[in-house]
């Protein structure tokens, strides 16, 4: 039950937040981390393109969904989980295109709810902070503290 690290990637592909909760990951220089985030951003865009075309309803006029088409229901999500023998990487993309990457042990349960909680902390302590500029690196003490409290309780 180990959570290794959290990365947040802006919608332009830049790494705006990285945090290691547990030692045991390979040490990477900040340049390597930026490259990793950029590469993942590109790979995520490619996996989105690989999504099969959504099935078209036979009679579009008759269904209720066609009356009010949601822009999100058929949206391809791209890469969501990457699992290896030693870690599992979960990717969550918000509606605005910000990506959260969570590195955990492969056996870690309830990653979805963890991700939701992290997103909640992000929208509270980062997006409601008057001194944070969107798309810029996140330096918010309360967000750090909230993550610490949350991960420690879980771990």
């Amino acid at each position: 039950m180990v959570v290794f690290a959290l990365f947040i990637i802006s919608k332009a592909g830049g790494l705006i937040y990285n945090r290691e909760f547990h030692t045991g990951m390979n040490k990477l220089s900040s340049n390597d981390l930026l490259m990793l985030a950029g590469s993942f951003h590109g790979m995520h865009a490619i996996t989105k393109q690989l999504c099969p075309a959504p099935p078209t309803p036979t009679n579009p006029a008759s269904t209720a969904a066609a009356l009010a088409p949601s822009p999100f229901s058929n949206r391809p999500s791209g890469l969501e989980v990457l699992e290896s023998s030693h870690f599992r990487m979960q990717c969550f993309q918000t509606l605005t295109g910000t990506k959260f990457l969570l590195f955990t042990e492969p056996q870690q349960p309830n990653i979805d709810s963890m991700m939701r909680k992290i997103y909640e902390l992000y929208s509270d302590f980062v997006m409601k902070n008057p001194f944070y500029t969107v798309e810029m690196p996140i330096r918010c003490e309360k967000f750090d503290r909230g993550l610490d409290g949350f991960v420690k309780v879980r771990g």
Binding site: D124, F125, K128, N129, P130, F131, Y132, R139, E141, K142
Partner: peptide, 14 residues
């Protein structure tokens, strides 16, 4: 509640 101060403004209290 949601405010984290940047380092150069650490003396500010909203």
């Amino acid at each position: 509640t949601y405010i984290s101060l940047p380092r150069e403004m650490s003396s500010l209290n909203c």
